Amino acid sequence: MDNSKEHTKIPVWAFETIEIKKPDPDWKYKGIREREELCILLSAFGVKQVEHIGSTSIPNLPAKPIIDLMASIPSLEPLNKIAETLKSHEWHYVPPELDKRPWRRFFVKVKNDKRIAHLQLMAEGEERWDQLIKFRNKLRTNSDLANEYGAIKSHLAQEYKSDRETYTAAKTEFINKVLHN
């Protein structure tokens, strides 16, 4: 097999470097628009709740300019139909064997070969749902925690600019500290 041909099938956005941007008040409104669109697109599959999470949902926090969302669904059973529906709205499905997080199904919204949003689709009752909400809410209400997280993210983004997986893993200690205090 010719690996160079295989490599060309991997989308450009899969190798995007990590860039932390200054807080943008427009992220809130982009989150609202994405949530509203996803509520409409996914309502046929029983989705009743879509949340804007992640750093772009926290006022005054530096972040990658990617709107992170999550949706709760009664069952992951109709995944193929969901992926078809989302694909026509610029969402790309990342299979679990690539995502390596079996508790969710992951989608990336892309425009001009750049990520603009992420969607974590989770079965109702998934414990990580509550953890993500708790983390977001603690940072929204505690500016010291938000500032500390911003500094950690900026440092890690420089250190792991081309390695999203290590960047994400390196934030785990801080996230666990926030969740368990």
Rank of each mutant, 00 (worst) to 15 (best):
M1D: 08
M1I: 07
D2G: 03
N3Y: 15
S4N: 12
S4A: 12
K5M: 11
E6F: 08
E6L: 15
T8S: 15
P11S: 12
P11M: 12
W13M: 05
A14Y: 13
E16V: 00
E16T: 08
T17F: 06
T17M: 04
T17W: 04
I18M: 04
K21C: 11
K22W: 10
P23A: 01
D26K: 15
D26S: 15
D26H: 12
K28A: 08
Y29K: 14
Y29C: 02
K30P: 07
K30Y: 13
K30H: 11
I32E: 14
I32M: 14
R33P: 05
R35I: 07
E36R: 05
E37P: 07
L38Y: 05
L42Q: 07
S43E: 14
G46L: 13
G46I: 09
V47S: 04
Q49Y: 07
V50T: 07
V50A: 06
G54F: 10
I58R: 09
L61R: 06
K64F: 06
I66F: 09
I67E: 02
L69T: 13
M70V: 03
S72M: 13
S72Q: 14
S72L: 15
I73N: 11
S75D: 01
L76C: 03
L76F: 02
L76A: 03
N80I: 14
K81S: 15
I82F: 02
A83R: 00
E84G: 09
T85E: 05
K87D: 07
K87E: 13
S88G: 03
E90H: 15
W91K: 02
H92I: 13
H92W: 06
V94T: 06
E97G: 03
E97I: 13
K100V: 08
R104I: 09
R104A: 06
R105K: 07
R105L: 01
V110K: 12
V110G: 10
N112D: 15
N112Y: 02
N112F: 05
N112L: 06
K114N: 07
K114V: 05
R115H: 07
A117E: 07
H118N: 15
H118Y: 11
L119G: 08
Q120V: 03
Q120E: 09
Q120W: 10
M122E: 14
M122R: 14
M122V: 12
A123K: 15
A123P: 03
E124A: 11
E124W: 00
E127S: 12
R128L: 12
R128D: 14
R128Y: 13
W129N: 11
D130G: 14
Q131N: 14
Q131C: 10
Q131I: 07
L132V: 10
I133H: 10
I133C: 13
K134P: 02
R136F: 02
K138H: 14
R140I: 11
R140A: 02
R140E: 11
R140Q: 11
T141A: 12
N142G: 01
A146L: 07
N147H: 13
Y149F: 10
G150K: 01
I152P: 00
A157S: 05
Q158S: 11
Y160G: 02
Y160S: 00
S162W: 01
S162K: 06
D163M: 01
E165Y: 05
Y167F: 13
K171P: 11
T172V: 08
T172E: 15
T172F: 08
I175L: 03
I175M: 05
K177D: 12
H180W: 04
